[in-house]
Design a binder for these strands. Structure first.
Length: 264
DNA sequence: ATGGCGTACACCGTACGA
């Protein structure tokens, strides 16, 4: 199956792009971030008519996450979780469910929208680190259940300087500060593989470009969207890539999807 | 230091993102 993560920056505005891309890229399961809508207004019917099931949790104006699965390849979606269990949070940033293919093989897919952090040292920055600590703590328990895991999302962290178009300008700043990077690798160390590291990639491959100053045209971007898997899945992942196609469409999301193939 | 651009909400500007 083909899996992906994509920050759509409003599922209502992006719905035409989303439907076209799911079809063209032949996506079987995708986690979405920044849906920016309450559950009552989530475009469930349009997605169902396009052949997808959805689990989602959102709020007015900000945040919001979803997991979409293609019915022709994913026969069941079970045990949904909304937000980080045990962590009290008004903000809707996490959704997870176990998805099972037509052969009865299962994987648990977690979608997460990590806090942006605004600026190093602000309250939002401390919230980002606290949220990541809570996530990491919960993931340890999830790994202990011995079900293969996928964790995809907008991490709002560039793990290394190669993930920044301007590493000098970004040094020590939000997305690139040492505590954020340490938190990223601490999360990995509890039992995940960054699927990006399984294959070679061209330098200057990013997943987000600023709308301003022709960021995409100049490839002034950062790589902050990631797909992780539990260790047992690492030899079943192939063709990990950023799909820049929808970033080039009219009125795009500022993020591009990250895509990979998984053989369960 | 600010704004650039886009989205949402709601007021005709402000909050927020990365």
């Amino acid at each position: 199956m083909r899996i992906a993560t994509w920050n759509v920056n409003s599922i209502k505005v992006r719905l035409p792009h989303l439907l076209s891309w799911l079809d063209e890229a032949k996506i079987d399961a995708v986690v979405l971030q920044e849906t920016k809508t309450v559950d009552e207004a989530f475009p469930l019917k349009a997605l169902q008519e396009a052949g997808f099931d959805a689990v989602f949790v959102g709020q007015k104006a900000y945040n919001g996450v979803a997991l979409l699965t293609r019915r022709s390849t994913i026969s069941s979606v079970t045990d949904p979780v909304y937000n980080i269990p045990g962590y009290d949070d008004e903000q809707k940033r996490l959704v997870a469910a176990t998805i099972t293919d037509r052969e009865g093989k299962s994987v648990r897919f977690i979608g997460a929208y990590f806090p942006n952090g605004q600026e190093v040292g602000t309250n939002k920055y401390w919230y980002k680190l606290e949220w990541m600590a809570a996530l990491t703590y919960w993931l340890k328990a999830e790994l202990a259940r011995d079900i293969p895991l996928l964790l995809g999302g907008d991490f709002n962290i560039a793990p290394s300087d190669e993930d920044l178009w301007d590493p000098i300008g970004w040094r020590g700043r939000i997305l690139a500060s040492a505590p954020e990077r340490e938190a990223f690798f601490r999360l990995l160390s509890v039992g995940f593989i960054d699927t990006w590291s399984l294959e070679l990639h061209a330098p200057g491959t990013f997943s987000w470009w600023d709308y301003r100053q022709s960021g995409f045209e100049q490839n002034h971007g950062v790589r902050i969207d990631h797909l992780l898997c539990s260790k047992s899945l690492s030899d079943r992942i192939h063709n990990v890539h950023v799909d820049v196609t929808p970033r080039g469409w009219d009125k795009p999301s500022d993020h591009a999807p990250v895509v990979a193939d998984l053989s369960l």
